[in-house]
Amino acid sequence: MAVIPVSRKPLSFAERTYIPQILGGLKITFKRMLKPAETMEYPEQRPEIPKHYRGVPTLVKDPNGREKCVSCQLCEFVCPPKAIRITPGEIPLDAPTGHVEKAPQAFDIDMLRCIYCGLCQEVCPEEAIFLQNQYSMTGYTRAEMVNHKDRLYELGGTLPDQHHKWDKKKAAEEHGNAH
């Protein structure tokens, strides 16, 4: 390894009086004082959330308003801190989406446990759970920090995808295979 000797120059007289440095510093801080503040005044001004931000996990519905989760429980299994708890339920056969067969009866995410890793979103075969841009999660009790199913759908809203996977499946069942 090459050794480069660096000579340290002795301080000049002006530098030893500190004065030029002090004046330079004062100039910098004065200029800074005239500029507008860099900070955001939080509750009124909100930061712009980047596109693929991983915020609070939420459940989404498809454009027809069908809940996309089929309670396969993959997210529950993959969740590293075991924050998700799903109670699977059945959809009655005579319902319009009866052919989907299953939907969660209860879906709880304990936000005191969640580590916002996004594995649930990654693993979901139905594109039903998403970490969206909500970053502020507060509550006064532990119970308040558990997001139940209705709250999850309220936070999640609708995913404007156009797959309509289960509608196509139903159509294929009724009219024979198109292929």
């Binding site: 801080t29 800074r32 004082m33 500029k35 503040a37 860099e38 900070t39 005044e41």
Partner: peptide, 13 residues
């Protein structure tokens, strides 16, 4: 206030 302005903050407001 002055410390806030120098540091680019609004300060107590």
């Amino acid at each position: 206030k002055i410390s806030a302005w120098i540091q680019g903050r609004p300060g107590p407001n």
